[in-house]
Amino acid sequence: MIFLHAVSHAYGATTVLDGVDLSIPRGKLTALVGPNGAGKSTLLSAMARLLKPDTGQVMVGDLDVLSAKPAQLAKKLGVLKQLNQLSARLTVIDLVRFGRFPHCQGRLQAEDHRIVEQAMDYVDLQEFRDRFLDQLSGGQRQRALIAMVLAQDTEYILLDEPLNNLDMRHGVAMMQLLRQAADDLGRTIVVVLHDINFASAWADYLVGMRDGSVVAQGTPEQIVQREPLREIFGLDMQVVDVAGRKIGMYWHPELVGAEELSPVAVYG
């Protein structure tokens, strides 16, 4: 379980996290949803000690994120933000092997290699193992990064917008992969998602954020309802039931009404 207590953070005068209290259930796939600037990525960064919040406490399992040794935490919690500056000289297998670094400090043993190959199989990238990262498509690169996190073999996995740059097919494949990692491997997975319907269809637990606060949380059935969605996104949308999943019709011109947004908020 990931536990946050009174976590606040500000960039200059802008408060991005405003006293967040949150428990994230263990062994489940949890999605952080909300509009741009709601603080989802910042919250994820705080859980992953990529960012030290101004105040508050973050516990991952029994480890206090702010005081734990970096190497110790890296065996328990893996995180993937957008790594833009990935060196073009890395091959897929080089990258995935980095996942073993917390366990072997770069000196891989037979056991490490076994886990790396498992992760490669799991994301189905064996045929690209010797390709350089800049020779891959966006979807393949994303999968390679996921494989690295899987090879890290951590109980907790945090992913910042894993569906970015993925088309529909690869987006679905990615969610399948995460679903399996939670179900088969028992990992606790937290993802930042933009699309409420991806979250509704694939996640076990939704956390809705707006303006740096958690405004709604619960199962997809509880959250994907007219009221909570208006609270989170500022959109009034019809919710329909499709094959047992709630789907918000936010893209349908007849079925959605937006709170008035200032032009700055829309274009900025």
Binding site: L50, P70, Q72, G78, L83, N84, F98, P102, Q152
Partner: peptide, 19 residues
């Protein structure tokens, strides 16, 4: 070997437990 990880940038280092 830590510098290998530094190539992944600050976030990559933190994720892999390298100070």
């Amino acid at each position: 070997r830590k510098l290998d990880v530094v190539d992944l940038g600050h976030d990559g280092c933190v994720a892999l437990g390298v100070d």
